[in-house]
């Protein structure tokens, strides 16, 4: 009789206490998956620019619609978070920031920098 064990990725609410370290870790995966979905839309946009005509007109009005704008915004949030936390991962690979204190501090820095980059990017888009 095999033991009934809880399986990932459904550990969070019931089996694990909330911690920022594990929350950011699963968020890295979730944003990675979101960016993978975004790569389909990105390819669609590139193909539309290359093709022009009806396809571009339809794509253009979709991107400018509320849904398209929200998707683009979420894509940018996912990108900046994944970028910052990815750099945190590279630091870990190089052997830095593994102590509990720095793991937590790195997590807060990642959130802050990702937010700042998102705000800066959209300020640049909307004001420049």
């Amino acid at each position: 009789m095999p033991m009934q064990r809880p399986l990932s990725p459904f550990m969070f609410p019931t089996w694990y206490r909330f911690q920022i370290t594990s929350a950011l870790s699963i968020l890295h995966r979730l944003t990675g998956i979101a960016l993978a979905v975004g790569s389909i839309l990105l390819t669609w946009w590139l193909v539309a620019v290359a093709a022009g005509g009806e396809l571009f007109a339809a794509t253009h009005s979709f991107i400018r619609s509320p849904v398209g704008t929200v998707l683009l915004f979420l894509w940018s949030v996912a990108f900046f978070y994944h970028l910052c936390n990815g750099i945190r991962h590279l630091a870990w690979d190089a052997g830095y920031g593994f102590e509990l204190r720095s793991a937590y501090r790195g997590g807060y820095i990642v959130i802050a920098v990702a937010l700042v980059l998102t705000v800066l990017a959209w300020a640049y888009v909307l004001l420049a």
């Binding site: 990105l42 946009w45 620019v49 022009g52 571009f56 253009h60 991107i63 400018r64 683009l72 940018s76 990108f79 900046f80 990017a121 959209w122 640049y124 888009v125 420049a128």
Partner: peptide, 13 residues
């Protein structure tokens, strides 16, 4: 790419 894309995504063809 992101800095460029966020501006160009809504621009004309």
């Amino acid at each position: 790419f992101t800095a460029s894309l966020l501006r160009l995504a809504t621009s004309d063809r």
